Amino acid sequence: MAPIRLAIVGLGKIARDQHLGAIEATDGIELVAVASRHARLDGVACFHEIGDLLDSDVEIDAVSLCTPPQGRFSQAKAALDAGKHVMLEKPPGATLSEVYALEALARRKGLTLFSTWHSRAAAAVEPARALLAKRKIRSVAVEWKEDVRHWHPGQAWIWEPGGLGVFDPGINALSIVTRILPEEFHLTRSELTFPANRAAPIAASLVFETDGGVPVSAEFDWRQTGPQTWDIRVETDEGSVVLTHGGSRLFVNGESVIVEEDKEYRNLYRDFVALVMKGAIDTDFSPLVHVADAFMLGRRIQTAAFED
């Protein structure tokens, strides 16, 4: 079959760091166009806005949206209305109502909508899920701390309403936990730390509980310098199961089981090709639901102003 003709919308840091290389390494898909307000890419058709792309004579089958979540709804809706399959960078949108509306539209149109969670595609996630399905879980503790100045230099949108603040990385942790735990869980307490000059939190302390009463805690912080921390520790009746390095490494009872290089985005594009070929939809919005709950239950704590 002919490869899927793909357009990227939003040629920023994440697109250049992850998407371009992953597309090139994936069979069954090729990049033919880009829509970006501030960047161009040699060798493909380039447009300023997605509307210009969709109105052009360039033939595409699918769109990968790598833009900030604010405003993404109108872009995704335009692509679906034009009959294009859509892949959403995480988080899938700025609100729950808009992502569920997109899911309903994709189903009505018979198109693929893929809400991606790149951390779920890390090497240790599925092995950890299979292992935990066989054990009795005692507790879960998440520690996800990184340096916002390193990962998001000059990106003002993350501090605006809908940008999620520290939940931009924190939702990666939640995407793993919602995948590996055999039980559903819900939020019981949320403390959100906001810089005095920002509309989104720089840190979050969350407490959850599973349907069976297992405690789940999560600490997110964007102020950590030096080595970064992306760890999920699960205590079970047979010892510890620990995912580190964002889900790419797995330790069982202190012994290293899996250590693998980053292939997350290659795995995502492989899955997108398969979904389009099957005419299927993959829209698990549960990580975004937990983030929305954190804002709804969040007790606000103010801290010093943050300057990039």
Score class of each variant (00 low, 15 high):
Leu132Lys: 10
Ala121Ile: 00
Lys136Ile: 02
Glu143Thr: 11
Ser205Glu: 14
Val140Arg: 01
Ile137Glu: 07
Ala196Asn: 05
Phe185Pro: 04
Leu187Arg: 04
Arg189Trp: 02
Trp159Lys: 00
Ala203Lys: 13
Val125Leu: 06
Thr178Val: 12
Ala156Leu: 03
Phe208Gly: 09
Thr193Gln: 13
His186Gln: 08
Ser190Trp: 03
Ala200Asp: 10
Asp168Gly: 04
Asp168Gln: 06
Glu183Arg: 09
Val177Pro: 01
Glu191Pro: 00
Phe185Glu: 02
Pro195Ser: 10
Ala121Ser: 14
Leu192His: 09
Ala121His: 14
His118Ser: 15
Pro153Trp: 06
Leu192Asp: 07
Lys136Ala: 10
Ala141Gln: 13
Arg135Cys: 09
Val140Asp: 02
Trp159Gly: 02
Ile176Glu: 01
Phe194Asn: 14
Pro161Tyr: 03
Glu143Ala: 13
Ala122Phe: 04
Gly162Asn: 06
Ser205Leu: 11
His186Phe: 15
Pro169Phe: 03
Ala124Tyr: 03
Ala121Cys: 12
Val148His: 01
Trp159Glu: 03
His150Ile: 09
Pro161Phe: 01
Arg120Asn: 10
Gly170Leu: 09
His152Leu: 14
Gly170Met: 04
Val125Phe: 07
Ala124Met: 10
Asn172Thr: 07
Ala128Trp: 06
Ala124Trp: 08
Gly165Thr: 04
Ile171His: 09
Ser119Cys: 05
Leu206Thr: 10
Ile137Trp: 04
Ile176Thr: 11
Arg179Lys: 15
Ser119His: 14
Ile137Gln: 09
Ile137Val: 15
Gly154Gln: 09
Lys134Trp: 00
Trp144Ile: 08
Val166His: 12
Glu143Asn: 11
Glu126Ser: 11
Trp151Pro: 01
Ala128Gln: 08
Arg120Ala: 06
Arg138Glu: 14
Leu164Glu: 11
Asn172Phe: 01
Pro195Cys: 15
Arg189Asp: 14
His186Asp: 07
Glu126Lys: 08
Leu132Tyr: 04
Ile158His: 10
Ile176Val: 15
Gln155Ala: 11
Gly170Glu: 09
Arg179Ala: 14
Ile158Phe: 15
Ala130Met: 09
His150Tyr: 11
Pro182Arg: 02
Glu143Cys: 00
Val140Met: 05
Val142Gly: 06
Val148Asn: 00
Lys145Tyr: 00
Ile202Pro: 00
Trp151Met: 00
Arg129Pro: 07
Phe208Thr: 06
Asn172Leu: 12
Ala203Leu: 06
Gln155Asn: 02
Pro195Thr: 12
Glu126Pro: 00
Asn197Ile: 13
Ala130His: 12
Ile171Thr: 10
Glu183Asp: 15
Trp157Asn: 07
Ala130Asn: 14
Leu181Glu: 05
Leu192Cys: 12
Ser205Thr: 13
Glu146Asn: 08
Ala130Cys: 04
Val207Leu: 05
Arg198Ser: 13
Leu174His: 06
Ala128Pro: 10
Leu187Ser: 07
Ala196Trp: 06
